[in-house]
Design a binder for these strands. Structure first.
Lengths: 217, 217
DNA sequence: TCTAGGATACTCTATATAGAGTCCCCGATG
DNA sequence: CATCGGGGACTCTATATAGAGTATCCTAGA
């Protein structure tokens, strides 16, 4: 088996850091933080040490020394192995070349949109719009700072990507909200009707089942 | 504490289904599948039953009956409680109104882009482009089918959203690839140089550290 | 000089999760 | 009539994960 388990991208981050030079896990965390890679990779200590252990078990990194200063906890310095270099390369290549299915929370929320009444949905979408605008504004400010610091674009492509996604999301929300306001969203009348019942929230049922999936003779 | 744990969106999906009518977990899974909600919410049996248990412990759903036909495994039918209705509403409202930070795999990959040589990166990006195009093509075909089945747009907004994100990703990848080809990507010379060393892969170190984060006098 | 607060460098534990495995039924096939 | 395959409806288990907790050192203020 060439690829043991490629679950947590934090493991990839560790490999990248150790490919630069040997470090102890806490130092890996620092490095990722000062480079703002913790914006793109979920980083917390609980997972970090677990992930390093896994890498050790898979033979991708190995302990190179354990220092101790005073009576502070030991620091174990790890180095990447040859197998680690290979795995780093293959994993990263795969991540770049093949798009993976993601499950964004908002996509899930949209799936169940009919479960809230349409008027409330409208104001919730408005709130999201405002928050997204705020987020994009501060992201823009940050981008200017980074540019002024003369940090080449190569080192913040990931931030650009995140911003592009958020922008698309904002446009989508605005359009959906507009269609809702204009009454041009197909299914709206059903939606209003379902929530018009006086007997409290009747969130669904949607009027389609297996029979809509394929035609029968 | 009004909100116990709002981790897994599958729990939300279960609440939505049970708000429609009482079901046993397997039936919930079926329902989600026939409505293609398993495209927006990660669904697998291992998690499903665990999630239902959690909902029971939190008092959001309760067992209403357990049937048995023949010697097949028992089917426990669950119904949503009043607290469950409240939680369903609040959770969904939050998901719609406040954008959550996500960690897409490709964003992580972009973070570490300099770890592969630039020429290889170019062809990996090409491969991604092709795969994204294929994905979007089949998504388009599916969308037409759904439209022909007269399924109102309200019931597939989430798919529209996913497509919008993928389109943005495709554009982003195309542009990045083009900048790479044109040599207009800032940092490219450093990138080439680092990977030009004959002593194998020297993936990093990037030429910035804490000193770039803030100015000193 | 005493102390409050913040790094440093982990460690612990309860819970979540994925994926495989299990057991039974039913219809079709040879 | 035996058996084969494909659902249905879970159950089991090893691993991953988040978040809080711990213990030491250092610095700067009162």
């Amino acid at each position: 088996m060439p690829a043991g388990k490629r679950a947590n991208p934090l493991a990839l981050a560790v490999l990248v850091c150790l490919a630069e030079r040997p470090m102890h896990p806490y130092e890996v965390a620092q490095t990722l933080r000062t480079r703002h890679k913790d914006d793109s990779v979920r980083l917390n200590y609980g997972s970090l040490y677990a992930v390093v252990d896994t890498l050790v078990r898979r033979g991708l990194v190995e302990a190179s020394e354990t220092e101790r200063s005073g009576r502070l906890p030991e620091r174990t310095v790890y180095r990447i192995t040859d197998a680690g270099h290979v795995e780093l390369h293959d994993w990263l290549a795969e991540l770049i070349a093949v798009p993976a299915k993601e499950y964004p929370a908002f996509e899930a929320a949209l799936s169940f949109l009919p479960a809230v009444p349409p008027d409330e949905a409208a104001s919730l979408l408005d709130e999201r719009t405002q928050r997204l605008e705020a987020e994009l504004a501060s992201a823009g400010a940050l981008r200017e700072l980074v540019e002024k610091a003369r940090l080449p674009r190569l080192f913040w492509v990931e931030a650009e990507f995140a911003i592009a996604l958020r922008r698309t999301e904002l446009e989508f929300v605005r359009r959906l909200r507009a269609d809702l306001a204009a009454g041009t969203l197909e299914g709206l009348s059903w939606w209003r009707q379902v929530h018009g019942q006086p007997d409290g929230p009747v969130p669904l049922p949607p009027p389609w089942g297996p029979e809509h999936d394929e035609e029968r003779p």
